[in-house]
Each structure stands twice: as C-alpha cells, then as structure tokens.
Amino acid sequence: MDRLLNIKDLSVHFKLEEGVSKAVDGISLAVGKKETVCLVGESGSGKTLTALAVMRLIPRPGIIAGGEIIFKEADLLCLSEEKIREVRGAEISMVFQEPFTCLNPVFTVGDQIGESVALHIGLQGQKKKDRVFEVLKLVGINEEARVYDAYPHELSGGMRQRVMIAMGLVSNPALLIADEPTTALDVTIQAQILELLSTLKEKLSLSILLITHDLGIVNEIGDRVYVMYSGKIMERGPKNDIFTKTRHPYTEGLLKSVPDLGPIKDRLYTIPGSIPEPFKVPKGCRFNPRCPYVKDICRLQEPVETKVSAEHFVRCFKYE
C-alpha cells in the first residue's frame, strides 16, 4: 500500500520533577493514501501527543525523544522551523475537539478560514474569498455568505465544527488529523460530521488520521485501527479484524464498554482501575494491573508485537 505518513518508533518524553514521563513510548503508525486510520484509546494514552508530534507542536517541556515521522518521503522531524510551517495547514491539517475554543473570538469566520490560503497559496482579495466560499460549500454550509462574515459566537457547535474542518481543508492538504472531532457535539450532529468526513475523503482523495475514544465512530468510518494504551500500541489491524477477532484484553475491554441500543440487561462494563500515571508505568506489560487474564510473566516482562494475521498484530503474552 502507498504510504502517505509513516511514523516509526516515535517517542515523546516529558522531563518532570517526578522523573521522565514517556508519554509516547516508541510507537509506529502508518496512514496510506485515501485511508482512514483510527487511533483509539482512553484519555491520557498519548493519542493527541502523537498527533501533535506529527505537527511538531509538542508543548513544553515535552520533547520528541526519538523516532522518525516520514511524510511524502521527508522526515518531518528533520525539517527546519520554516519548512515545517509550510507543511502545517498546507500538507497536514488538524481539527480539534472543541470547536468552541478553537476559533478566535475577535475575527470573522471568513478571516480565519482565509488565513491558511493567504499564508500558503498567497491568495488575496476576491480570489481568497471565492476559495473560502467554495470550501464552506464543500463542508455543507449553504449560507456561506452569512457565515463568512459571522463571528464564531454567532454559530452553533455543529456549524463551528464544520468551519474548523473548512479551515483544515482550505489549502487542500493530503492528510487531515481529526482529534476527537465529534466529542463536544451531540449525537445527531456527530453523525452529520462523520458523514461529512467520509464524503470529503472520497471527494478530495484525503487521508484521515482520526483520534477518538469512541469505538462507534471507528466502526462507522475507520479502515484500520491502532489501539493505544499508556503510550504504546497494544493492537493494530484492519477494522473488521479488530472488531470481530479481538485479541488484546484492552481492546476487548473497550469494546465491552460501548453501550448497546435495546433493553438494558446489565450494568455497562467498565475496565477496572485507570490508566497509569505516565511516570509510574507498571513493570512488565503496562496493562497488567487492569488485565483480567494477567499471568506472572506479564508482571516481569514487556510483551513484543506478535502477528495474528497478515495485517493484524497484538502485543500480549496470551498469544506468544
């Protein structure tokens, strides 16, 4: 498969007084052309940091401690600050969780969407406006003239998320990173935004890296899935394999904790315990304190990735 983005052995470390926190601990992840890859995991598992590392925007005191991020044959980690700015917004765009706080309150929507094309393609004046109108229509906003002149607080949450996506797409990027794009929205709007993302992917030959904790979303638009826990990829594979041939106990737990429609039989399953503090990662397999199948070896040794099928891999002693 043609790979657009290839992350190899990426580590993000935070040097804190308590010690070094390995928030992202040697993960590898690839996104192919026109593929939707989902990165799944609980809050605090390092998903957003992985995405920010791709943009080279790890907040201080974090550092990218190792690895490679190959995008279109270039290692993003080796680019100069100027070169990486040319990638941001133009080649790779990012859409965040909170459409309420991600738009600058003092500029109109048109100004904010237009900024990226002005910076990267140099469009000005009427041409810029035309392009913004075009992309607003593309994300399903029909009153583009009104929205263009509106301030963010004049729009609803769903509208704002569409505006954020428009901002991401206006310079025609090859890869869109969507960080929990629907978490702050209510369910009906969620469905619309997901629908929009799949249509856009087809129309624009876009690759999407979708970060989420919601397996319902993965099921709807994902092609391949990476399950991340405490900075490591625990299981990866095509969506159907992950859902039907689940291997890792953590993935299993995540799947069991999705509520079903229909009559309530039992209390909803929850994975016991919580994700470890990043500088107190347990010895051995980092999931062992919460794992229902824990064995002695899990507490001593870190499992390596084992092959389940051609594209399906798991990191667990159950299968070694």
Binding site: M55, R85, S93, F96, E98, T101, N104, M164
Partner: peptide, 26 residues
C-alpha cells in the same frame, strides 16, 4: 494557551503573526 492559538499554529502561522495578529487583537 488558548486553543485558537494552537489552531493558528496548526494552520502554519508564524510566531510573529500569532503574537501581533491572533493574540494582540484579543
């Protein structure tokens, strides 16, 4: 630390543009 600053940076804005355009206006 506002998120719109991060989203401006993600769109490829430079430090000077973020300082004198995005933040200063606020």
């Amino acid at each position: 630390h506002r998120e719109y600053v991060l989203s401006a940076r993600v769109a490829g804005a430079s430090n000077s543009r973020i300082i004198f355009h995005h933040i200063l206006r606020n």
